[in-house]
Design a protein around this nucleic acid. Structure first.
Length: 223
DNA sequence: AACTGCTGCAACCGCTCCTTG
DNA sequence: CCAAGGAGCGGTTGCAGCAGT
């Protein structure tokens, strides 16, 4: 009987699909009381008909405090490209170096913009690549105080760049003929930003810079 | 205005790793 | 040391909204 009950429990049909506000509330309450972890116990304590996995994912990717919403900034995109060149598809590792961003978000970003390389996507990829390169070049040329402005008015910048990058894109396409996977960054732009520059790009974030960079830019250490 | 394709995002699936008894 | 269960991770899918035709 007990075995049967256990069997029934393990074969329980978990609810799937989009989360409701009520479910989010229950999950938040659970985490505030019990902390992160023990996800499989969530359904027991809250009555939520969600699997532990689902609860963990929802919390990590959506409910966790401090998460940044919205598109990655060009600077973040550049960091992702750079880290991907080092770590490959280690999304969680990359995410650890981007406070407020989740592995899922980064994975989605990469897949959307670089993961598909069929011809139909080449134009968009070129555009985005050009945008990133342009932004990073500008960042290195501009005086530091402009950085905060650039980031906070990032949407405006994006719009302008989207327009201008079309022309740049065309010339780049003519030059290269083919869009390739983001290549080792030293071929594309010169990073890193200095700590000061970087701090300016995260005016609302208090981060231990040293731990934040994970010693990333120490390329001498890289194989 | 209608249709089509693309993008961004949330969520699920399956596998691997880690912990615990 | 080993097996079982839990947690974490990367890959994949589905869908709504938007832009282009």
């Amino acid at each position: 009987m007990v075995a049967m009950m256990t069997s029934l429990t393990t074969e329980k049909e978990w609810r799937k699909g989009p989360w409701t506000h009520e479910e989010d509330k229950l999950l938040r309450e659970y985490v505030s009381l019990h902390g992160e972890g023990r996800w499989s116990a969530v359904s027991k304590f809250t009555g939520l008909n969600r699997s532990g996995k689902s609860c963990r994912l929802r919390w990590v990717n959506y409910l966790r405090p401090g998460l940044k919403k919205g598109q990655l900034t060009p600077v973040e995109e550049g960091i992702v490209v750079e880290l991907h060149a080092i770590y490959g598809n280690k999304w969680s590792t990359i995410a650890k170096c981007l406070p407020g961003r989740t592995d899922n978000e980064i994975k989605n970003f990469w897949r959307t913009h670089f993961g598909k390389r069929d011809k139909s996507k080449h134009k968009n990829l070129q555009r985005r690549k050009a945008k990133m390169l342009k932004h990073l070049k500008e960042k290195q040329q501009e005086p530091q105080e402009n950085d905060i402005k650039n980031i906070t008015s990032h949407e405006d910048t994006k719009n302008n760049e989207t327009k201008s990058s079309d022309t740049q894109n065309t010339s780049e396409q003519q030059e290269t003929g083919v869009l390739t996977y983001p290549t080792p960054i030293e071929d594309q732009y010169s990073l890193p930003l200095t700590h000061q520059e970087f701090s300016a790009t995260w005016p609302d974030t208090t981060v231990d810079i040293d731990s934040f960079w994970c010693g990333l830019w120490d390329f001498d250490d890289q194989p």
